[in-house]
Amino acid sequence: MSNEPLLSVKNLAITFSTPKGPVNAVRGVSFDLGRERLGIVGESGSGKSQTGRAILGLTAPNGKITADQMQFHDLDLRNLTPRAWRKVRGARISMIMQDPKYSLNPVMTIGDQIIEAYREHHKVNAKEAKRRAIEMLESVKIRDPERVFNAYPHEVSGGMGQRVMIAMMLIPDPEILIADEPTSALDVTVQLQVMAILDDLVRERGMALVFISHDLQLVSSFCDRVLVMYQGLVVEEIRASELDQAKHPYTKGLLNCLPKMDGNHAELPVLTREASWAEA
């Protein structure tokens, strides 16, 4: 479904300097992102979040980014000024984090936060902004939008909070949405419901979605294409529908070690890591 990539990343590397020496968090990651759902999967520490954050210019100050290319339309993301970043971040590329609790202001009602975000991008009066905010809450399938509008973040459940975050992220109509484990803290059914909302919105608006998760099974049932990361490297790129034909032993290992609901209590196959996987 994609012809011209929105974002093209070539040979992205991120190195953090720490008291114990440099940490190579991301090593030579390349991908093109079209109007599609791209999954990034891997174990914790494999560099998924850092890859996503680099696209948003959110790398911690002790990290150094190098890349042969990081092209977003006509913008070179490699050397944007902080000022230029502010025009891109949130407006054209947006991010949803794992825990909505840390992304929402705890002392402001959800409604006020949405209105504030909305009026930053649209010149409307207070009444119209409220109407739009309620509409937005409806669009993320919140059944009782009036109540949620007047609630504080701690008064709503995790799933509800994540829906609110999605609603807010979509206000400026970004072209790329990066979702970093947006559902990992939620119950299975709620998780799937939130994903369905993301799914619908991405389809309707023709956005590109980068879905970061540690859950290979889940990602492959949701995304079009999956990058599998291991120790900062992309070890395999595969169409989600062809996951059963994965070639890399790491991808296969990740799939095999999941417990199955077959009433079989035998040992689970464990992943035997080989040093060669971590070689660039």
Partner: peptide, 11 residues
Amino acid sequence: LDVSIQAEVLN
């Protein structure tokens, strides 16, 4: 835990 680690701990 990661699924690979989960498998080890469950075993």
